[in-house]
């Protein structure tokens, strides 16, 4: 069992909801982000999601876009994220999951400059095609190094179930979680496939949109989660649009936990470190008061 599985099983047996906190690695600066991850655990976070900053974060709203720009400017890379994981592992055994975009992982370990053969050929060059087919090599190297560093899994919001089979296989082989998504628009057939293959936890996207949206109705995702439950016993966590204690409570009705990102990152970007931690504490308290048996 991974740290993540152990933690989620323990929460379940205690009848408690998990609190997943997303923090972009490297924003507002590297030191603060690492400190925030460690302090978040003390404030009541169960799982930390380390955001790997990407130049073009398709699934993210303005807050994570801003933190990504800052983190990239601060030199944050996949390698840098693994360094932070090693650092945290010196003092903590809390579950750590990375969240990022596939392109950074495909590039992991890349160093040599590419060659560009430029000639006409009359037949398809099978060798060239074969060479480009190994495009998950970077991902595999990442999984091996990440596992060794102490990371428990990865969330890739631009990899839907249809594209994940090769990466899923690599992850499973390394006892590393590749987190799958369900949303309010996921059809039942796809939900069955996704849930059957799911590993670690299932990320339930609360709304049709991107991260950082405010004031949501969580009844839809709770209905979706209830529906998904028939296909899997893998824990589920709801993310997108959870910005305060009240929304954390209403989002968690049917699932095993909630994921909070933009609300924490916004405060960190604004230099409100203590307020970010206070928010985490308030969510922890509210979830425990409301759900603890």
């Amino acid at each position: 069992m991974t740290r993540l599985e152990k933690k989620l099983a323990a929460l379940k047996s205690e009848g408690r909801k998990g609190l997943f906190i997303y923090i972009t690695a490297g924003a507002p600066d590297i030191e603060t982000s690492v400190k925030a991850m460690l302090e978040a655990e003390r404030a009541g976070a169960d799982v930390i999601e380390l955001g790997i900053p990407f130049s073009d974060p398709l699934a993210d709203g303005p807050v994570i876009q801003e933190s990504s720009v800052r983190a990239i400017r601060n030199g944050m890379t996949v390698e840098g994220v693994l360094k932070i994981v090693r650092e945290i592992r010196k003092s903590s055994e809390m579950p750590l999951v990375a969240m990022g975009y596939i392109n950074n992982l495909l590039s992991y370990g890349f160093s040599s400059p590419p060659t560009h053969p430029q000639q006409f050929s009359t037949v398809n060059d099978q060798e060239a095609l074969k060479a480009s087919a190994g495009h998950y090599d970077g991902f595999e190297k990442f999984v091996v190094d990440a596992k060794a560093a102490g990371l428990d899994g990865v969330i890739l919001p631009d990899v839907p179930h249809e594209e994940s089979s090769a990466m899923r296989e690599i992850s499973k082989r390394n006892e590393f979680h590749l987190v799958e998504f369900i949303t309010p628009v996921t059809t039942v057939e796809r939900m069955r496939e996704t849930c059957t293959d799911a590993d670690g936890f299932i990320y339930c996207v609360s709304n049709t949109g991107v991260t950082g949206v405010k004031e949501l109705d969580f009844s839809v995702i709770n209905r979706v989660a209830r529906e998904a439950r028939q296909f899997t016993s893998t824990p589920m966590a709801v993310g997108f649009g959870i910005g305060n204690a009240a929304s954390a409570v209403s989002a968690a009705v049917e699932t095993d936990g909630v994921i909070v990102g933009s609300a924490v990152v916004r405060r960190l970007l604004d230099g409100q470190f203590d307020e970010a931690m206070a928010l985490i504490r308030s969510m922890r308290d509210a979830l425990d008061q409301h759900y603890r048996n």
């Binding site: 398709l58 699934a59 596939i102 095609l129 480009s132 087919a133 495009h135 919001p157 631009d158 990899v159 839907p160 179930h161 249809e162 594209e163 998504f181 369900i182 949303t183 628009v185 996921t186 059809t187 796809r190 996207v205 049709t208 949109g209």
Partner: peptide, 16 residues
């Protein structure tokens, strides 16, 4: 197209 292409998009747009 060979190994190129695919659908690397958020789950939310897959049904569309």
């Amino acid at each position: 197209f060979g190994s190129y292409g695919g659908q690397y998009v958020p789950e939310i747009v897959m049904p569309a």
